[in-house]
Every structure is written in structure tokens, then in C-alpha cells.
Amino acid sequence: MSTAARVRCAPGIVWVKDTGRALLVDGETGRLWALQDADALTWELLSMGYKYTDLVRMLALLLTLSEDETSAVLDDTLARWQAAGIVLAAGDSAHG
């Protein structure tokens, strides 16, 4: 199973949806991210607590990709987000 299976939104991040974009702010550092299109969709579904397999299924249907293709895109996205600190491995405690 992918490492992304155990990812969740970082608790210090607050976000709003704005005409198809997700605008994220790290409450501690003030850093901002503007996620577009498929990234915004992924963020919103992740923040609703979907598990990895369900996320893949939903995204595949929404983006009209195969589940394998979706899985590859999702792994890449989550790895980037983990490096940026906007998602955490599910076992990690909140920073701060």
C-alpha cells in the first residue's frame, strides 16, 4: 500500500473554497497555497476524511481517469503536500 494511505490534512492549516480554488493558510507561519482544479478537489475530499482507496475511486470518476492513473497522480500530489507540510502522515501528532 502507498505511503499516502496514511495521510491527513495538517491541523494547523485553515482553508476556504473560492470559485473552484482552495486557498490554504498555515496558521503558524502564515504561508499561503492556492490549489487549483484537481488539486483543489483532492484537498476538499481529503479534508472530508476520505480514505485513500475511496479517494482514488472518487477522483477517478470525477477526472475520468483509470484508478491506476489516479493512484499515480494522487501519490505524487500527496508526496508534494507532505513535503510542504500541508498534509501529515496519519500517525504524526500535530506540529506545535
Binding site: G20, L41, E44, L45, M48, Y50, D54, M58, L61, L62
Partner: peptide
């Protein structure tokens, strides 16, 4: 069945756009 609502809302929003 929240997934049905999420899927329908996101898909309809994309199609409406």
C-alpha cells in the same frame, strides 16, 4: 451515503462550469 453527495456536487459543478 456522503460519497454520492460529494461526487454529485463536484461533478455537477464541473459540468455547469
Amino acid at each position: 451515503v456522503e460519497a454520492v453527495i460529494d461526487l454529485a456536487v463536484h461533478l455537477a459543478q464541473r459540468r455547469a462550469a
